[in-house]
Computed example of a mutant assay.
Amino acid sequence: MCAKRFITRLPVTLHVLAKAPLPGQAKTRLMPLLGQQGAADAHAELVRFSVANACRAFAPKRVTLWTALEHQHPLFTALARQYGVTLTPQVSGDLGARMRHALNADPGPSMVIGSDCPSITPSLLRLCAAQLADHQVVILPAEDGGYGLIGTQEDTPSLFHDMPWGSERVLAKTRDRLAACGLTAAFPATVWDVDRPEDWQRWLQFRRKPT
C-alpha cells in the first residue's frame, strides 16, 4: 500500500528507538570484545550520544525516546530529566512495525533513528528535516546496506512491511518500493553504525575528534 502524494509544511518530529542497556540483551555482537556488562555500557553510551545529538538538532518537545526491554530504566529517566524529551514504550512487532508506529505518532512529517548510529550528527539531522520539506521520504543509507534514518511525510506501509531487517538488502528493497509507489525521496548522506567490534573501534576514534 502506497502513501498519498502529499507535502506538508508542519514541523518535523524526531523519534529515537532504544533498548534499555541490560547485560546480555544489548549490543550482543560487541560481547566477544567487551563482555556482557561492557556491551551494555557501550550501548548506554551510544543512547546518550544519540539523544544529545537529537536535542542539539531540535527542541526537546519535538523529540521522543521510544523505550524497550525496561521502560523505566534509570538511563531513560535520567535522559528525560536532563533533556526534557518524551519517553514512550515501543509497540510490539518487528522493527518495521515499531518504526512505522513511531513515525505516525504525531501529525505531520517525522523521522526515526536508532541509537547506534553516532555518525548522524545534529547538522545532518537538520539537513534531513530540510530535505523532508520538499520530498515525501528522506533516508540516510548505511554502509552495511541498511539505513540509519528514515523520514516520511505521512504513513507509507509498504516501506515497513515484510522487509528483510538486519540484512544488506534493506536499502535496495526500500528503493524498489519507493519507485513502485512513485514517491520522491532524498538521500543526503551515507552513514555508519556501531554493531561489530570493528565498529566500536571506529567509534572510539570518532569520539576523540574535536567537535
Rank of each mutant, 00 (worst) to 15 (best):
D195V: 06
D94I: 08
A57K: 07
W203F: 15
Q153S: 02
L159F: 04
W66H: 14
V47P: 01
L124V: 03
W165I: 01
T121C: 06
A39N: 07
F6T: 06
Q36C: 12
R98I: 04
F206E: 02
A40Y: 08
P210I: 10
A80N: 11
W200C: 01
K27H: 12
G148L: 03
Q136V: 03
A44N: 02
R29Y: 09
A26D: 04
E45G: 00
P11H: 04
P23S: 11
I7F: 03
K61G: 06
P21R: 14
L17G: 02
A172V: 10
I150C: 00
T211C: 07
E143Q: 08
Q153I: 03
L75S: 06
S158R: 10
G166M: 14
V170K: 01
A179M: 05
V194H: 03
R98M: 12
V85H: 10
A52L: 12
A180D: 03
P197L: 14
V194D: 01
F160A: 02
D41E: 15
P197S: 12
R56T: 08
V47E: 01
A42V: 07
A59P: 11
A179L: 06
V85G: 03
P210G: 09
T64V: 15
A179Q: 10
D116N: 14
A40S: 07
V85E: 06
V63P: 01
T13Y: 11
T77L: 15
R29L: 11
S167T: 15
D41R: 14
P32Y: 12
R62W: 13
Q153H: 03
P107E: 04
